[in-house]
């Protein structure tokens, strides 16, 4: 099975992350704080385009190239509010598996998945979160992220 996190849950749910830099991480009760997103995508050109776009929109964006890296980022105690992950990734955990793990370990973290399907609706409800169908416009992604962060 997937690894369970020890230790970091309490740290995370309080909204405090590493905080050593004192720059990105502040207590959660203000609206000014930059929300931290984690983007998980194995194709680098897609990852960097998506992450650049989201940074331009004012988010703090952490990047992982597979689910295992995503677990590392969670384990390090980063104050992640939302994960946007591709469903199909190499490695032993898929995006769906990652979504399930997050749902169990960090129920407050929002999850948005992207699935490769060239036709059909642009989004659907998956078991562990909303699924965006590729290709999607960056604006569509942004709208979904904002909705999830506000929910």
């Amino acid at each position: 099975m997937f690894p369970a996190l020890r230790l970091v849950s309490d740290n995370h749910s309080s909204g405090h992350g590493p905080g050593e830099s004192g720059r990105h991480v502040k207590p959660t009760n203000g609206h000014k704080r930059k929300a931290t997103l984690l983007v998980v995508e194995d194709e680098i050109l897609i990852r960097l385009a998506t992450c650049d776009y989201l940074r331009e929109q004012g988010f703090r964006v952490l990047e992982a190239s597979n689910a295992s890296e995503a677990l590392s980022v969670f384990a390090a105690g980063e104050p992640i509010e939302l994960v946007f992950s591709d469903v199909n990734m190499p490695g032993r955990m898929s995006g769906t598996g990652l979504a399930q793990w997050i749902h169990q370990q960090f129920p407050d973290v929002k999850v948005l998945l992207a699935a490769g399907e060239s036709s059909g609706p642009e989004h659907a409800s998956g078991e562990f979160g909303m699924v965006l169908i590729k290709p999607y416009a960056h604006e569509t992604l942004l709208a979904h992220i904002k909705n999830l962060l506000m929910a």
């Binding site: 690894p3 369970a4 230790l7 590493p18 050593e20 830099s21 677990l71 384990a75 390090a76 105690g77």
Partner: peptide, 24 residues
């Protein structure tokens, strides 16, 4: 510079230590 490279190094070590102790 946002902060001294020594602080960067410290931050990396803290993150790695957190991962080591929380991810079997």
């Amino acid at each position: 510079k946002p902060f001294h490279p020594q602080e960067l190094l410290k931050r990396i070590h803290i993150l790695k230590e957190r991962r080591r102790t929380s991810l079997p």
